[in-house]
């Protein structure tokens, strides 16, 4: 049930935080303005938010984000090393990852995660939303890559956004 008092419980604190960061001050005025904006913007853009976003297990989400941060660092070192070694050492390949996630937020989270981590970029979502095509920079074993993506990233996201 959407309420005019708190139209979008997740967007409001995010907008308030962005406002405070933008103004670059922690004065009460800035915080108040941020909260007002965080309340008013979701209220007026309510019709653009068709699905309610529900985070079911915030702890799993936080653990996932920590794993993600670590993986981003490793991914960057790996990609930098591959680039320095030169084009002759890369084995690019496309792999198809079958999806179990069904919600918009889950799929976009997974696609962004894949793009930020080891040598892979999500490139194409099939129109029926059942599979995601992923391009890898240095793929030795496509099956292992699909396994890793499903176990390491999709499983926690399934728990956070879609377990009932």
């Amino acid at each position: 049930m959407k309420h005019w008092l708190l139209p979008h419980p997740i967007l409001t604190p995010i907008l308030a935080l962005i406002w405070v960061l933008l103004v670059n001050s922690l004065s009460p005025g800035a915080i108040l303005m941020g909260v007002v904006l965080g309340w008013a913007i979701p209220l007026f853009t309510l019709r653009f938010w068709p699905d309610e976003v529900r985070v079911r297990k915030p702890l799993t989400l936080i653990r996932f984000l920590v794993v993600l941060l670590y993986d981003i660092l490793i991914a960057n070192l790996a990609v930098a090393w591959l680039i320095l070694r030169g084009p002759r050492h890369v084995h690019p390949a496309f792999v198809v990852v079958p999806l179990e996630l069904t919600t918009d937020i889950g799929i976009s989270f997974l696609a962004n995660t894949i793009s930020l981590t080891p040598g892979t970029v999500s490139s194409w979502l099939s129109p029926d939303r059942r599979s995601l095509v992923v391009q890898g920079l240095d793929v030795k074993d496509p099956h292992a890559l699909v396994e890793t993506i499903k176990r390491r990233y999709e499983a926690p996201l399934l728990e956070v956004f879609e377990s009932c």
Partner: peptide
């Protein structure tokens, strides 16, 4: 940017700018 300049095809070039 080095990755962008020296990788052989578009899809491999994509990796440098997005990550590094």
């Amino acid at each position: 940017s080095l990755g962008l300049a020296r990788m052989p095809d578009f899809y491999t070039r994509l990796h440098g700018p997005t990550k590094a």
